[in-house]
Write a protein that binds this DNA or RNA. Structure first.
Length: 220
DNA sequence: CACCAGGCAAGTA
DNA sequence: TACTTGCATGGT
């Protein structure tokens, strides 16, 4: 199984090149973006991020001192704005109360410890926690999302009822433990998912798809 | 008009 | 454990 996953990666990288993830200016922005993008199109998240930036609120100190109602108004374009305001506040509370408001102190925790801390924040689930681990803390953790599951399922690589942990274990036990590889691979899967695997189950245009629907690694 | 997007938590049986 | 529902805007 090591070879197929690496072969798929190489194929995608050859076709699409580096994706430059995560699109953010700072680890703090990665974390806020990770919460805002929950079940939400990235284009809408960008509007919310821009609003926060224009109001100088994309920092721990300024955002901590901002009333929830104002945050909610500014992040409105990203949807679920009341919910997400609370989730961002939950993260800020954790950082301020347990890590003296020092983001580096939080991000330098051991990978396993950090994952548990993040999952303990209400509103931070496995994908959000792992996105923060990989793209803000640069830890070698593979991020699983709906596209990853859909693509692998349609190509017959996994069973439909595989859960988050099954998928993460599949990638991490069959690929070298390389933060740069995990970073690029997840970004490429999202790219392919957005571009080819939206509706049609056949996925005929997907660059991974051979005539039988399974990955055609000799294609291209 | 309907459907979907880089999820998560709470409620029900 | 295994479903179901609420959360909400903006693009196609």
């Amino acid at each position: 199984m090591r070879k197929p996953l690496l072969a798929i990666y190489k194929k995608l990288y050859r076709q699409f090149g580096p994706q430059k993830w995560w699109p953010a200016d700072s680890p703090f922005e990665v974390i806020v973006g990770a919460i805002l993008t929950q079940n939400t199109a990235w284009a809408n998240v960008e509007k919310a991020i821009k609003n926060l930036k224009q109001n100088k609120l994309l920092s721990l100190k300024t955002l901590s001192d901002t009333k929830p109602s104002r945050i909610a108004r500014l992040i409105k374009p990203s949807g679920y704005y009341n919910l997400k305001t609370g989730r961002i506040k939950n993260f800020l509370d954790c950082l301020n109360d347990r890590f003296e408001g020092d983001l580096n102190k939080l991000l330098k925790q051991k990978t396993g410890d950090l994952r548990k801390i993040l999952l303990g924040i209400k509103g931070v689930g496995p994908e959000t926690a792992d996105s923060i681990l990989l793209y803000a803390a640069n830890k070698p953790i593979f991020v699983i999302d709906a596209y990853t599951k859909r693509i692998l399922s349609r190509h017959g690589i996994i069973k439909k009822d595989s859960d988050y942990n099954d998928l993460q274990y599949l990638f991490m036990s069959n690929l070298p433990k390389d933060e740069k590889l995990y970073n690029e691979y997840h970004a490429l899967l999202v790219r392919v998912g957005k571009e080819f695997c939206k509706k049609k189950p056949e996925c005929r245009l997907c660059p991974l798809g051979g005539p039988d629907g399974k990955p055609d690694l000799n294609f291209c």
